[in-house]
Design a protein around this nucleic acid. Structure first.
Lengths: 195, 195
DNA sequence: CGGGGTTTGTTTACAGTGTAAACTACAGCG
DNA sequence: CGCTGTAGTTTACACTGTAAACAAACCCCG
């Protein structure tokens, strides 16, 4: 309203995305556009200057979520060598899901499949894929799929179920699973010829 | 209304559950109570005689979903011996998700965590657990967790992503993952002593 | 400096939703 | 017969997403 408003002019779009992300993880499902607008001190229709509809806002939230997940995975990957980097990525993945359950759920819901978010999603997938390919040049596609499945499955089950699984147990389960997937042979030891 | 109504008197509850299940998989997210009532030729408030609120209806849908999933897993488990039963369960799990994506998503969403559905969910979990325990008496908890994670992860990723993964590729990935998880050693051959 | 066009927001309005409240029709049973 | 419980109804309200029309603030060019 007044020019003395303390916020920069073009900030609403990002503020909407951030507020929606925050509200998602605050518990009660998808926030309403009107509630978001109220929280930001703005009219109910303001968001329509930045997004064609609510789904587009949510898609932007999802896209930002995948960007952040991707960055988290990259950091985890860099934190350890070889196969341990893969386990670290898996742990980071599960940690992300537990830290932002609402966002994570949205990212893997029909709302998260908007074309808008496809690029960011692919980038996150590539973090894992690259590490798997580095560890097992033979059949990276299948191995990546299996790795992502394990990690994603653990995250979702942990979220849904509140399996009282400690972080240590998770780490062990991840390590066992990844080792089992035939990814490790070339990593820890120098490569041996193997069928 | 009339006594000549072709349905038994207490049938509305089940009809609501079935219609909701159907509508879920017909595509457009959670159906509205009013739309369900309209489809069933009944007033908007009728469902409140059978469920305290919409969440309770959805919880009933989820519970029925888990019962059916459990039955599907049991049938798959009985269709093959030993480790192949585990792979069969995994395939059946993914098939279930693909055949009823809306229901499956609901089952693993916050709505699916209602206490109402807990028993049915546990029953489905036990299908897998029992088979894993039979194959690997050593550490069934961790192995079950990992197996479920792989299977559930594959299902979710397939659903979200439309990974153009054929059923045959899925079967192979499942077999590889399950074999890798250290479940197979005692199954196919007579048990050998193994660390 | 002024003036038009774009951007960003506003108010108003409407259809659709979940649900509370009060009411009606009907079953079985004393 | 009346009493009571069950299954359903109509009405009403607060809330949602969103279309339409309008207003103020910015940018850029003269």
């Amino acid at each position: 309203m007044k020019p003395s408003d303390p916020s920069p002019p073009a900030g609403l779009r990002q503020k909407l995305v951030d507020a929606a992300t925050l509200a998602l993880d605050a518990g009660a499902g998808e926030p309403s556009l009107r509630a978001l607008a109220r929280d930001l001190g703005v009219s109910a229709m303001a968001s329509y200057r930045h997004f064609p509809d609510k789904a587009a806002l949510m898609a932007a939230v999802v896209a930002q979520g995948f960007v952040r997940l991707s960055a988290t995975l990259a950091a985890a990957d860099a934190s350890a060598p070889g196969m341990q980097a893969l386990v670290a990525q898996g742990l980071a993945y599960v940690d992300f899901a537990m830290a932002q359950p609402g966002l994570f759920r949205l990212m893997f819901s029909p709302a998260g499949q908007a074309d808008n978010a496809a690029a960011a999603r692919a980038q996150a997938y590539n973090r894992l894929s690259a590490r798997v390919a580095a560890l097992q040049p033979g059949n990276p596609a299948a191995a990546t799929l299996a790795c992502w499945a394990v990690v994603h499955g653990l995250a979702v089950l942990q979220l849904d179920h509140a399996l009282a699984t400690s972080r240590e147990e998770l780490r062990e389960a991840l390590a066992v699973a990844i080792r089992g997937l035939g990814v490790e042979q070339q990593a820890v030891n120098p490569p041996e010829t193997r069928g």
